[in-house]
Simulated assay, not measured.
Amino acid sequence: MNTADLHTLTGAYVLDALDPGERAAVERHLADCASCAQEVREFSETVTRLGLAVAAPPSAALRDEVLRRIATVRQDPPTTARTGRGGHVRPRWRPVPSWALAACLAGAVALGGVAVAQYEQAEDARQQAQRARLANDAVGAVLAAADARVATAPLRDGAVGTVVVSDSRNQAVFAASGLPAPPSGKVYQLWYNDGGGKMRPAGLMGSGTPATATLLDGPVDTASGMGVTVEPAGGSPRPTSNPVALLTFPTV
């Protein structure tokens, strides 16, 4: 695969539509191509926004309440006009029963509750999109760093792990191609290997596919490598299982 081909695969890379060999080639290419790294950041942001653009249907309780009122509230007959003196048409006003006012008020309160819930959902989606954009920007900055170094290693079950380290940013990014989803109730947790058997928590892998590039939490500092373990949802303060991946950081 030549460099020209790699320039055309950024969209498929973001959508996780590449085979392991192609994904590994693109990830190596991103470390040296600032324009492609920028494309990946922009595509990732767009995909994130599209994924958040979902409609929120009304609750079942609100639907049931509307149907109940349709069946129980009597429909008023059409109003007719009365002709007053001089042939002027006067509208016929009917007093509004108190129960009708109460029904309108209850409906307004219910709709107000729906509006508040929808606003809160929209606000949550906006904050999630903001966090995703910041994370994408941070990942892209590491991949595009002038001193970014890349290391790739085979993992179990034919998966491939790739880590990119930038000394100037003191950060690292990890991605795994072909790694199966963790068991139910479990997550993949990342660790810095500080040597001497000491593993420092470095966050959880992204919530998307395991191939999603994830920025390790915290600075690289003196870490010589990283590992990945399967942990209970929410993560653990120290590894509780054998590592599924161990990678040594590339040296200059």
Results as ranks from 00 to 15, higher is better:
Leu216Trp: 06
Thr83Glu: 14
Arg169Leu: 11
Asp19Pro: 07
Pro57Arg: 04
Pro154Cys: 09
Gly225Ile: 01
Gly178Lys: 01
Arg23Tyr: 05
Arg41Gln: 12
Gly140Lys: 03
Glu42Tyr: 02
Leu6Gln: 07
Ala181Phe: 02
Pro78Thr: 13
Gly203Phe: 03
Ala202Met: 04
Gly112Thr: 04
Asp157Leu: 05
Ala129Cys: 03
Val228Arg: 08
His7Asn: 06
Ser59Met: 04
Leu9Thr: 05
Arg200Phe: 01
Ala245Thr: 04
Ser168Met: 04
Met1Gly: 13
Glu231His: 06
Val54Asp: 10
Leu111Gly: 13
Thr8Val: 10
Arg94Phe: 08
Val160Thr: 14
Leu247Asp: 08
Gln128Lys: 13
Pro180Cys: 01
Pro20Asn: 15
Thr10Asn: 11
Ala223Lys: 07
Phe249Glu: 10
Asp157Gln: 09
His29Met: 06
Ala125Val: 03
Leu67Thr: 14
Ala122Trp: 13
Glu27Pro: 00
Gln38Gly: 03
Pro97Asn: 08
Pro250Lys: 14
Gln121Phe: 06
Ser207Gln: 11
Arg23Lys: 08
Ala100Phe: 07
Gly196Met: 02
Ala132Lys: 03
His88Leu: 11
Asp221Arg: 14
Leu247Ser: 09
Thr162Asp: 00
Leu62Gly: 02
Leu246Asp: 06
Pro180Met: 10
Ser35Thr: 09
Ala146Ile: 01
Ala60Arg: 13
Ala172His: 05
Ala117Asn: 07
Arg149Asn: 00
Phe174Met: 04
Gln189Cys: 05
Ala55Leu: 15
Ala135Met: 12
Ile70His: 11
Thr8Arg: 15
Gly112Gln: 08
Ser241Phe: 05
Arg133Glu: 09
Ser59Arg: 11
Pro201Cys: 04
Phe249Asp: 11
Ala202Trp: 03
His7Asp: 08
Cys33Gln: 05
Leu67Ile: 10
Gly208Ser: 10
Tyr119Ser: 14
Val230Ser: 03
Gly113Val: 10
Arg149Gly: 05
Leu247Thr: 07
Ala172Cys: 04
Thr212Arg: 13
Ala132Ser: 14
Leu134Asn: 12
Leu105Glu: 13
Ala141Asp: 13
Val116Cys: 10
Ala202Thr: 02
Gly11His: 14
Pro78Cys: 00
Ala31Lys: 00
Ala106His: 09
Gly51Trp: 09
Gly113Thr: 05
Val109Gly: 02
Thr72Tyr: 02
Val142Thr: 09
Leu247Gln: 02
Thr46Phe: 00
Gln38Arg: 14
Pro154Tyr: 02
Ala245Met: 15
Val114Trp: 05
Gly21Lys: 08
Asp137Ala: 15
Thr46Glu: 13
Val14Leu: 07
Glu65Trp: 15
Trp99Asp: 15
Gly197Phe: 07
Leu9Glu: 01
Ala71Phe: 00
Asp167Thr: 11
Leu190Ser: 02
Ala12Met: 04
Asp194Pro: 01
Ala24Lys: 05
